[in-house]
C-alpha cells in the first residue's frame, strides 16, 4: 500500500478494459526461465540422481554388506530378477492389498465426514470458532504421538473398551490390536480421527469460495438445500475435491508412523502396509536391490494417481475456459 499516488500501478476501473498483463507475463516468463535455468538444472539433478541410482541398484543384488561400493554394483548384476521376484511375492501383494484397503475405506469416510462438517460450518451457529479450533486439533498432533495415544486407547483394558462396557452394560474386552481383523479397523479409525480435519479444512476453503449471492439466488429460485448442493456447490468445488482426495490417497499410501507404533504391522502381517513392508525388509532382510525395485513401483503407482488427478483438473480448467 505504499505510495498510492505513484504511477506504478494499473487501476482497476469500473469499465474493464483489456490490459496487456497477459502478454507481458508471457514475455517475462521466458526471461524468467532463462534466469532460473541453472537452478532448475540443479534441482532436476538432485531429484533425478536418486531416481537413477535407485533404478541402477534395482537391477542388481547389491547390499551394503556385500563389501562392494555402490557404483560397482554392476558386479552383482541380476537384471530384472528383483522385479520378477517382486511380482511373485505374496507378502508384497498382501501389503499392497492392505494399503489399498485402508485407502478405500478411510478416504471416502474422511471425505464424507469432512464434507458434512464443512457444509455445517458454512452457516453461523453458536460457538462456531471454538468448534472450529477443536476440530483442527487432531491434525496438529505429531503422528507418532497419535499412534501411541491410540495404542493406549485400544488396549484390551483401555478406555475404548471401558466406554463400550459402560454403554452396553456388560463387560467388554475386545483385544483390538491383537485380533488380525480388528487391528486393521483400529488403524483405520485412528487415521480417520487424525486426518478428517484436513479434508474438512480443504473442502471448507472450497465451499467458502463459492459466491454467497449465487447460493442466495438459487434459494430464491426455489432450490432446496440438497438441490443447492448438487447444482451449485458440487460443480464449483469439484476441482478442490479432486485435490483433497488426491492428497489423502497419496498420503495414506505412505501410512507408516501411527500404524507402526500401534501395531508394528502385526499381529503377524495383518496390518502390514507397503511402507511397513519396505521398512521391515530394508532393516531386517537387507535386500536393497529388491527394495529399490519396490520403491520404483510405488513411485510409478503414485505418479499414476497424481497424473489422473492432474488430468481431471486440466480438463476442468479447459471446460471453464471454453
Amino acid at each position: 500500500m505504499s505510495n498510492v499516488d505513484d504511477t506504478a500501478k494499473p487501476v482497476a476501473s469500473g469499465t474493464v478494459e483489456k490490459t496487456d498483463s497477459h502478454f507481458h507475463a508471457y514475455g517475462k516468463n521466458r526471461l524468467g526461465l532463462y534466469l532460473t535455468l541453472p537452478a532448475q538444472i540443479l534441482v532436476l539433478f538432485i531429484a533425478l540422481f536418486p531416481l537413477l541410482m535407485q533404478l541402477y541398484i534395482s537391477l542388481t543384488d547389491w547390499t551394503p554388506l556385500t563389501g562392494v561400493r555402490w557404483p560397482q554394483a554392476y558386479q552383482l548384476w541380476s537384471g530384472l530378477a528383483n522385479y520378477a521376484d517382486l511380482l511373485d511375492d505374496d507378502r508384497f501383494y498382501g501389503a499392497l492389498w492392505r494399503t489399498f484397503f485402508i485407502i478405500i475405506v478411510a478416504v471416502p469416510i474422511e471425505f464424507f465426514l469432512g464434507l458434512a462438517m464443512a457444509l455445517l460450518f458454512m452457516d453461523e451457529f453458536p460457538a462456531k470458532r471454538l468448534f472450529y479450533s477443536a476440530l483442527l486439533v487432531p491434525m496438529m498432533i505429531v503422528p507418532a504421538v497419535a499412534g501411541y495415544m491410540f495404542f493406549l486407547l485400544f488396549q484390551s483394558g483401555g478406555p475404548i473398551n471401558q466406554l463400550l462396557s459402560l454403554a452396553l452394560g456388560t463387560k467388554v474386552a475386545i483385544s483390538w490390536l491383537s485380533d488380525p481383523d480388528l487391528a486393521l479397523a483400529a488403524v483405520i479409525i485412528s487415521d480417520i480421527w487424525q486426518w478428517t480435519p484436513l479434508m474438512f479444512l480443504i473442502l471448507l476453503a472450497g465451499l467458502l469460495g463459492v459466491p454467497s449471492e449465487q447460493l442466495k439466488a438459487a434459494t430464491l429460485l426455489g432450490a432446496s438445500p440438497w438441490q443447492r448442493f448438487l447444482t451449485i456447490l458440487l460443480p464449483k468445488i469439484k476441482a478442490i475435491m479432486v485435490i483433497a482426495l488426491a492428497i489423502r490417497t497419496i498420503e495414506l499410501f505412505k501410512i507408516f508412523d501411527t500404524l507402526y507404533i500401534m501395531t508394528a504391522g502385526g499381529p503377524g502381517v495383518a496390518t502390514e502396509t507397503i511402507s511397513v513392508f519396505i521398512f521391515k525388509i530394508t532393516t531386517q532382510e537387507l535386500v536393497w536391490g529388491y527394495v529399490a525395485a519396490l520403491a520404483l513401483l510405488i513411485l510409478f503407482t503414485l505418479s499414476v494417481i497424481a497424473g489422473l488427478a492432474m488430468y481431471f483438473l486440466q480438463r476442468k480448467k479447459r471446460e471453464v475456459a471454453a
Binding site: 449471492e213 449465487q214 442466495k216 439466488a217 464449483k236
Partner: peptide
C-alpha cells in the same frame, strides 16, 4: 416466491 436480481447478478458461471 419473489424474484430477485442481485447487484452483481449472481449468474451461475458454471
Amino acid at each position: 416466491g419473489v424474484g430477485f436480481v442481485f447487484q452483481n447478478y449472481a449468474i451461475f458461471t458454471h
